[in-house]
């Protein structure tokens, strides 16, 4: 499988990365090179093979239903590029 520039643009849009025409062109070549490389997986017979869900065979631990965190709105917003009254501010979202 290979991708064209339009696909690369669509994928970049999904990933929210702006690309210039030159970049889209270059990335199309690079992506095709990588996709060409991974194509060899098609040789592998995976019939009846379970996909890996975890490399470690342990049961997932769980937390108790106790409030142990939060109550630090200032800390949470301390690194925010734009904030006000402990809210994060973003360009207006139109619903």
């Amino acid at each position: 499988m290979s991708v064209d520039t339009a696909t690369v643009r669509r994928v970049a849009r999904l990933a929210r990365i702006k690309v210039t025409d030159d970049e889209a062109e270059r990335m199309t070549n690079e992506l095709n090179s990588i996709l060409g490389f991974v194509e060899q997986l098609d040789e592998v017979d995976v019939a009846g093979v379970e996909p890996m869900t975890s490399v470690v065979s342990v049961k997932m631990r769980r937390r108790q239903d106790v409030v142990t965190d939060g109550e630090d709105a200032e800390g949470v917003t301390a690194n925010a590029p734009v904030s006000e009254d402990n809210f994060f501010l973003v360009p207006k979202v139109v619903e």
Binding site: L41, D42, V44, V46, V49, E50, P51, M52, T53
Partner: peptide
């Protein structure tokens, strides 16, 4: 999905 199956192998 295929890659994760290969990973199992």
């Amino acid at each position: 999905l295929r890659a994760q199956k290969v990973r199992t192998l």
